[in-house]
Design a protein around this nucleic acid. Structure first.
Lengths: 132, 132, 132, 132
DNA sequence: GTGGTCTAGACCACG
DNA sequence: GTGGTCTAGACCACG
């Protein structure tokens, strides 16, 4: 599980961390119950502040991707990621809306948009099979 | 063209404005060459700070969705929206990546994701034809 | 609205702040839509760190007692406090359980316990009337 | 006497233990003079650290719910639980205050609050009689 | 001016 | 050793 941060972008570091951990889960590299490094270790490893890692972990905990467990430390949520419930889908829609609006305005065809998504999704086929 | 802002969300107001204007273009409600309200007028209309409107307009200009003329005022770019060039597509990919990773992690199937996008895209039939 | 913190106790300052603001709402001293001081001002007023106030505000926002509003700053939630829904009541029960167990074990009678609660509750009759 | 711990909550394990033992006393399941398992045994039984059990026992001893003898081991205090003295009642008040303030703010009526307490209290009929 | 983010460093409760 | 809390100070985006 490699963490790759971009310190130039205006996206907060803690959010980049959140996304990368979720991506790790999606790729099946991080499995339910698996332990994550401690706040301090991860911070030292990737050369950022402890509090930044902590903020990412808190966010992931609140979104139910991880647990902060008194005995086992920080672990990928044993039940797996939260389900794609109605609230999530509503949120997702709201997020996609402006992206799709812009694509449409730029004459980026529906077909191309769907193919693009499909291509990205193919990186995240979960389960046993290897993927890159 | 109605503007609907959410002052509680953590998304900046100026970006909400930007997105809504692009959506208006995508829906064909705002056509190339059409005049937009002045910074002052729009700010007064929707009850926000002039600087906020200005920031949105600057962003739209820089992204080539609008032109700002000393005389003719603010107009939708006469050439229409910018094309979906390689840079745009790369950016779009980067934006979609974490969204799709999360969807995959939550077991939201590729098929469902594509259908969701398709449904949203249907609201934005390409530029020419009228739609509401 | 006076804030009185105890720096000796082991209860985190930010939680004391949270509780005092909720108490202020319960007493009707803080009304829906009313503005709270900025993070920095409140911190300066009560002589604590900005981040501690911020943590309290974030907690109150997440519990829907306040809004952090792009235009109006930090305000008591315009809709008033969140309702006493099932989840809240379940939580409350869980909190009361050990308190009542100990009271019972110490032979503090049910009647006395209820009277004690009643007496405390009388400080929080909301609405027009004055109370101390 | 079953001990049920939650390792995800932010309440310390040792305090959960303390509360459950007090609840056992309140329900009359643990009677004055009754022996409790040794630190080591209890720790092994419920799969937690010895230090955690020890901390709970020390807390219970200091609050006079149990005695720790070199020879007889750990026993429920032969005199029964400590009385509901003034200090205890003051503490209890301070604990209830913020709970009741929040209840009041959420429009959870005094009547409902008292009924809730009453219902919980009914689980803990005073020391003497047997109940489950 | 305001909140959001990040860094740095410290102390403490918990296990 | 681990996370939680708090302080202090800095920079930035937003309005």
């Amino acid at each position: 599980m490699f963490i790759q941060l971009d310190f130039e972008t205006d996206q907060p570091i803690y959010l980049q961390l959140v996304e990368q951990i979720i991506a790790g889960i999606a790729r099946g590299e991080l499995v339910p119950g698996e332990r994550l490094p401690s706040v301090r270790n991860l911070a030292a490893d990737i050369g950022i502040n402890m509090h930044t890692v902590n903020k990412a972990y808190q966010e992931l905990r609140q979104r139910e991707f991880i647990q902060i467990h008194r005995q086992r430390g920080v672990v990928i949520h044993p039940n797996g990621p939260p389900p794609a419930d109605e609230m999530y889908i509503t949120e997702l829609k709201n997020t996609l809306h402006p992206l799709i609006a812009e694509a449409a305005s730029r004459q980026f065809s529906q077909e191309d948009f769907l193919k693009l998504c499909q291509g990205i999704y193919d990186n995240y086929r979960k389960g046993g099979e290897k993927n890159d």
